[in-house]
Amino acid sequence: MANMEQILLEVKGLQKFFPIRRGILQRVVGQVRAVDDVTFHINQGETLSLVGESGCGKTTTSRCILRAIDPTAGEIYFRTDACEMLNIAALPESRVQPLRRCMQMIFQDPFSSLNPRMTLLDIVGEPLLVHGMTDHQERQDRVAELLQLVGMRPEYMQRFPHAFSGGQRQRIGIARALALNPRLVVADEPVSALDVSVQAQILNLLLKLQDQLGLTYLFVAHDLSVVKHISERVAVMYVGRIVEMATTEEIFGAPRHPYTEALLSSVPKPDPRLRSQRIVLEGEVADPANPPSGCYFHPRCRYATDICSEETPVQEEVETGHYVACHRAHELSLRGIARQ
């Protein structure tokens, strides 16, 4: 296992419940268990991807880590510049703010994440201003440098976002995220709103920046081929829980959880000769406000037995670094994607 020196972020038992209020008294009648007992870590300089269907809690997890929303329970340890592990979840807001320069976010939709009334200089320079770089010239130089870093001409600084295409806007969003030299970058579906030809450019840029600046990525995505391309480790989420976590190679080559297998087989492959015998999952994703008993996946699982509907499986390490939460993880042999 990775030794303690390298761990940048460690999340333990993270929970985030949203109350459901009803009636004129706004009584709490239930809880949406958006994130329910999530545990993982990210090493310095690596890319961990969170994948899963919509509503599985990927985005909520990433927002809890940034303390954009407060978690209900759990611990989030982040390695500070002084090399101590701080529990972000327990810190008061005033102490979280300076930490935010170490962790930044890239958003999904480059059309709504940039203020149309601000120039690029204002957009990319805003985090610098907030964190105390008040000198105008200094800020302008830094913005020019950042724009160059993401492959844009510094002369564009005085323009407004409407003058740029989706791919260029996403580059601007990346420049803003990198302004404060963060160590952890949370990328929430950064390429899902882009066309394929532009998507490749942004993926290449993210990989290049990681090598150049030694960044650590928490990559939230639903497109498995993108995830496979960019990440070293993958965590698969289902209804607020991590059902499987392993290296990219193992997740794709030898999955151990039936949900991972189904997810992999449902990705359409861009080759007509591989029209696959797909596993089409029946039914719908479980409701996080009213989850099924036992393993949340059992109503849709083709391998489910009696125990699956009765007991909640615990996450166990089946191989070094390969975590699975499934009662039958040891007996099943599941189909991955053939390595070529």
Partner: peptide
Amino acid sequence: ALLRSIPSIESTPRVELPTISGSI
């Protein structure tokens, strides 16, 4: 170019993808 630029679920990870230069 379009076929080359999609990251395939079967391809080698973390290598630079061939891209189409410029934008539409």
